[in-house]
Design a binder for these strands. Structure first.
Length: 176
DNA sequence: CCCTGATTCGC
DNA sequence: GCGAATCAGG
């Protein structure tokens, strides 16, 4: 994939909206978050409003340079096990995007008509310590329910909703 | 562990 | 110009 005018345009738009590089990469498709970040820098639209402080990082010696073949090095070097970023592209990605925006701007917002594949839509009384407590619909309504997917050993949400709930908050904290 | 953007540098 | 690898941090 190359950076066509349209794709650059989309990049600018999404970046201005405050989306993260990986989210933008997921929507554009065919690019990694690194590609997005790299492009953002080249376009000189990095700052996104604030973030004036440039701590002036120093880079270590990169890659191959004088790395005399130590057997263990190659294996241990890879700290990011190759992962296709948030691979899901298409309708699902768009739905996710919608939810993230909602969560980012409003504490309480009924997430209607958003389909989560693993949702079991449990009633409040059906929840256990291990069920996802992500709310579906209007809490004041009768058909209000919770996601109910397996939430793991700790945490109130399943992995899917944990990301929706927690990531935007962490991101906001820093930008503020 | 998950993620974020920033930087470097071989291509 | 591009973006993977890496860094530094939450």
């Amino acid at each position: 994939m190359s950076w066509t005018d349209e794709r650059v345009d989309m990049l600018k738009k999404l970046w201005a909206e405050g989306l993260s590089a990986s989210q933008i990469a997921a929507q554009l498709g065919g690019v990694s978050r690194n590609a997005v970040i790299g492009k953002v820098h080249r376009l000189k639209l990095s700052s996104r409003g604030r973030a004036p402080a440039a701590p002036a990082r120093q880079k270590k010696n990169t890659q191959t340079t004088g790395n005399a073949g130590a057997a263990g090095t190659a294996a241990s070097r890879r700290q990011r096990s190759a992962r296709p970023v948030t691979a899901s592209v298409g309708a699902t990605a768009l739905k996710v995007q919608f939810e993230e925006d909602a969560v980012a701007y409003q504490q309480v917002r009924p997430v209607e008509d958003v389909v989560v594949p693993i949702a079991r839509n449990l009633k409040l009384v059906e929840l256990t310590e291990r069920t996802c407590k992500w709310p579906n619909g209007d809490p004041l309504s009768e058909d209000f329910s919770f996601c109910g997917a397996d939430a793991g050993d700790n945490g109130p949400y399943c992995t899917f909703h944990s990301r929706l709930a927690y990531q935007p908050a962490a991101e906001r904290r820093r930008n503020r």
